[in-house]
């Protein structure tokens, strides 16, 4: 029995032991650790990468991941809608990620998108590559951490550059039926566009 095999068989019990340890300190943190394990396991087994959903579509006309991201978006849009509507009815604060739009959003997304090309992946691919043992991604992580601090320092300047639009929750503006119908049409339309783009790319090559 070689050493690698022993380490491999010890990994799941070790992960469970960490969950037990965390449970004593905070059951919620233990749950988040377990959810992280599930997410990491699933993303690694499926070779998932959001950065590649953009990059490989552009570079190679390869849109398998693009369509998988659209599937994730369609499913979670539906489940989040139920969770958000329940919160709205009960008067609880609206769950989810709702942020304002400003020049900071546009500049930030542009720099973020450009940066994931030389880095070879976005923040989530960095976590995946680290788990796979790629030491190079420690450098990417260090860059993200340092860049985050600089971004936080400059944030007020970027946000004051042009107008700032308060967070827009689409159902509050156009209602749930139009929001969900519009989103599903967009996800489906983009998936069709991805298939068309892939076929067109294959013809060219």
């Amino acid at each position: 029995m070689n050493r690698k095999r022993i380490v491999a068989l010890l990994a799941p019990p070790a992960a469970a032991a960490i969950a037990f340890g965390l449970f004593h300190a905070s059951p919620k943190v233990a749950l988040l650790w377990l959810l992280g394990l599930a997410l990491g396991f699933g993303l690694h087994r499926s070779r998932f990468c959001v950065a590649a959903a953009f990059r490989d579509a552009i570079l190679f006309g390869d849109t398998g991941l693009t369509r998988a991201v659209l599937l994730a978006l369609a499913l979670s849009s539906a489940s989040f809608a139920i969770i958000q509507q329940k919160a709205l009815v009960s008067g609880a604060p609206l769950p989810g990620n709702l942020y304002p739009i400003s020049a900071a959003t546009v500049a930030g997304a542009l720099l973020f998108g450009a940066g994931l090309v030389p880095a070879g992946g976005c923040a989530c691919s960095t976590l995946l590559r680290l788990g796979e043992g790629h030491a190079l991604y420690l450098w990417v992580l260090a860059g993200i951490v340092a860049g985050s601090l600089a971004g936080a320092y400059h944030f007020p300047w970027w946000e004051s550059l042009a107008g700032r639009m308060a967070p827009v929750h689409l159902p509050a503006v156009i209602g749930w039926p139009a929001t969900l119908a519009g989103e599903m049409v967009l996800f489906g339309g983009l998936a069709f566009l991805a298939v068309w783009w892939e076929r067109r790319g294959a013809n060219e090559l």
Partner: peptide, 10 residues
């Protein structure tokens, strides 16, 4: 690349 992503994401 990491610096650009960290700065942009923030």
């Amino acid at each position: 690349g990491g610096l650009l992503m960290g700065y942009g994401a923030r």
